[in-house]
Computed example of a mutant assay.
Amino acid sequence: MCKRKIVLTAAAFVSTAVVYGQDGNAGISQATSAVKGYFATGTSLMYAIGAVVGLIGAIKVYNKWSAGEPDTAKVASAWFGACIFLVVVATVLKAFFGV
């Protein structure tokens, strides 16, 4: 009984794939235009996330510095590095894809 279900499911999938088959180039072109449409929004979102991470990091570093904790420099460099990473990734992707 189980083999029959598997065979019927596979047959249904293959017949559906044949009926809905499309030109591969048209599908890739459509996907490319969709990705390019969201790319500018995505890079802006990455810049915004970098700004929020920077603000949170600044508050955490200030709290550690005010409390006199000894590892303030290590925490500050970690948060600063995270912000720089987000901005650099967004900029490099924007330059690489030419959007």
Rank of each mutant, 00 (worst) to 15 (best):
A82T: 10
D23K: 05
K60P: 00
A34F: 13
G81K: 06
A76G: 07
V75W: 01
A76I: 03
F39T: 08
A82K: 04
K64R: 09
T43V: 15
G54A: 02
S33Y: 00
V92T: 08
P70V: 14
G50T: 06
G57Q: 00
I56T: 14
A40F: 02
T41D: 11
C83T: 14
A26R: 11
A90Y: 02
C83A: 09
F13P: 00
W79S: 01
G81Y: 03
G24R: 12
F96V: 13
S29L: 08
V18Y: 08
V14T: 13
D71C: 06
V35Q: 11
W65A: 14
A67F: 12
I56Q: 12
A26T: 09
C83M: 15
G50V: 10
P70H: 05
N25Y: 07
A26G: 05
A17K: 07
V87S: 03
A48I: 00
V14Y: 09
K36D: 10
V88R: 00
A73Q: 10
Y38C: 01
L55I: 14
A40I: 06
N25R: 14
A40Y: 02
A17S: 06
M46Q: 03
T9D: 06
A90C: 07
W79Q: 03
R4C: 09
V87L: 12
A78T: 10
A90E: 06
L45P: 02
F13A: 14
F85T: 07
F96C: 03
G50L: 05
L86I: 05
A11C: 11
E69Y: 04
V75P: 00
A76M: 01
N63M: 02
Y38K: 05
I6S: 06
G57H: 02
Y62E: 03
F85Q: 04
P70W: 04
V88A: 15
V14K: 09
S77A: 11
S44A: 09
R4G: 04
W65D: 05
A95I: 10
V14P: 05
K94G: 00
Q30D: 13
I84V: 14
A26C: 04
A34N: 12
